[in-house]
Each structure stands twice: as structure tokens, then as C-alpha cells.
Computed example of a mutant assay.
Amino acid sequence: MSFTRSKIFIACTLASSLLITACSNSNNDEKKQGTLTASAPATGQASNISERNAQQRLINTLQQHFKKANINAKVLDIKATEVPNLYWVNLEGMSSVYATADGKYIIQGDVLRLGDSKIHNVSENLQSAANKKLLASLKTEDLLVYKAQGKTKHIVYVFTDASCPYCHKLHEHMSEINAKGIEVRYIAWPRGEQFMPAMESVWCSEDRQAAFNQAIAGAPLAPATCKNPVRAQYQLGLNMGVNGTPAIYNQEGVYLGGYLSPEELAERLNN
């Protein structure tokens, strides 16, 4: 037996009152047509549908409130947190925020759980999962890659800007970082429009590493133009909540920190 999305909700709700444990679909043709099927307990399926509906209502409410307040923000994703009636909201080009279930309040910053030996950031897993997808979408040829020496133990993504002093400091230790088996993948993230041309020149150079080394050293860089990913990478950083450089992430999308010494970076990757 098969049901459309609306019918299965009603059927499962009725079934739960009769202690029927599951709704199922054995018609493969209708599965291909996008009908909703369930093999889980009816109450669980109804709960999942209810949660999705609640999330969509919250997205709509937030977008309406943003529009009324003249806030130019677009909701990319929304997920329930472990805190009752509090949702994590991923915004395009902005740091993620929290929103109450009714959409009346948004909270900027971190929500921390106490009670254990370590403080737990409620959104860390949610944000890192979103970051992982974004980082995985990058093409290696669009990055500036410094490969590990010997066996590659770790890969890190670093949002960088040739004009950033702490990026200079990190880059000075590149050989030490690579010697620890860490591959570094630089992502262009000019900290302002005035720094965009220099980063585009680096990315458009025939020898990207040599050009970046030259820019980091403060030497004049010959202007170069081409079709490049610099602005797209800058936008990706905004979507991940990057607000400064360097910003270091592991392959799982977890933010490791800003400037880190080779020893500190290796320690965080190994923990």
C-alpha cells in the first residue's frame, strides 16, 4: 500500500492510536514517483514529519522578520539543537545564529553546555558538518597547496590573505608544518576589497606558490587577471562564518583556530 505525503501522515497518526507499529510501501514504481514511504514506527514517522514542518515554518517566519527589519539575510539551513525550542540557523554570507522556535528571537554567539569536565559548544557539530560539505566542494586546482613531506597524516584548509601579518607568521613555518605530515590548502580570503587585486594576481600567476611567497614577503607583484575563484572562495568563507585570517579548519570542518605554531597545530589535529 502506498500513500502520498499528506495521506501517510493521517494514516500513521490513526495507526498509532490502534497500536499499529509501522506503515510500509511495497510499490517500487510509486517510490520512484516521490511518494513518501515509512518502515519506522508510525509515531516516529509522524514526529519526523512534524519536525520538518516546524523547521519550514521557522524558516518562513525568520525570512519574513528579516524582510521587515531590512536585514538582507537568507536562511541556508536550520537544525534543532539539544536545547529545547532552540534552533541553529545557517545564514548565507553571515555567521550562524540561534533562533527560538517561534522565530521571535535570534541569538548571536555561542551557546555553551556546562556540567562536564569540558565546556561543550552546542553548535560545534552542526556547524562543522555544514563546513565539511563546503570544503569538500572545493577543487584542489583552485587552491594553493603545500604538500606534506613524506606520508600525509593530516590535511588542513586555511583561509589566508597575503596582507595579513599573522598569515605571514604562519607561512614562515610552512616547511615545519609540512615536515609534520600536514598538507596545507590555502583558500583565498582577502580581508577587504582593497586586497582583492593582490590575491587575484596570486591566483592568476603561472607559479601560484612563487607569487604568494613574493606577496607574503612584501615584494611588488605584477598584476595578473584571469577567470579565478577568489571571490567565490571569499563568499564560501563568509558562509562558514570566517571573520578574520588565518582561519584553520580540518577536513571534518572543525575550526582549529587562527594562528597556531606547528606544534600547536599538530597537537590539535592529533587530539
Rank of each mutant, 00 (worst) to 15 (best):
I107M: 11
G257Y: 01
Y249Q: 08
N53V: 11
S123E: 15
R191A: 05
G150Q: 07
A222Q: 10
R268I: 02
E267F: 02
K68L: 10
H120I: 14
E264C: 00
I59T: 09
E206K: 13
V97Q: 03
R231Q: 15
R113M: 08
L19A: 10
H173T: 09
G244M: 06
L126T: 08
K67R: 08
A42R: 02
F212W: 13
D110F: 06
T81L: 07
T81M: 10
A224V: 00
I182A: 05
Y98M: 05
L269T: 04
S117T: 08
R52F: 07
P229A: 04
I177T: 14
L19S: 13
C167F: 08
E206V: 02
A188T: 04
S50E: 11
T245V: 13
L86M: 01
V230S: 03
K7E: 15
Q149L: 11
I182E: 07
K169S: 01
I106Y: 01
K32Y: 06
A129C: 07
V89M: 10
P220E: 02
S117K: 15
H154A: 00
C12E: 15
P229Y: 00
C226N: 05
K133M: 05
G109W: 09
A99E: 03
I107D: 01
Q233I: 07
S117Y: 09
A136M: 01
I248L: 08
A198D: 13
L135P: 10
S205H: 05
K139R: 09
G237I: 03
P220F: 00
I119K: 11
V97R: 06
K151T: 15
P84Y: 06
R113A: 12
E30P: 00
E141P: 02
L58H: 05
G257V: 02
P223S: 04
T245D: 05
M240G: 10
A247W: 00
G258D: 07
A54T: 07
V202L: 03
N125W: 00
R268G: 03
T13G: 14
G241F: 04
E141K: 15
A188Q: 12
L170D: 02
S205Q: 01
Q149F: 11
C226H: 02
E193L: 09
A266D: 13
S17Y: 06
L260W: 01
S163F: 06
Y234W: 13
A211R: 04
Q149P: 08
S128W: 02
R52S: 09
N131Y: 03
G103S: 02
V254L: 10
Q33M: 14
Y234N: 09
T4G: 15
A136N: 05
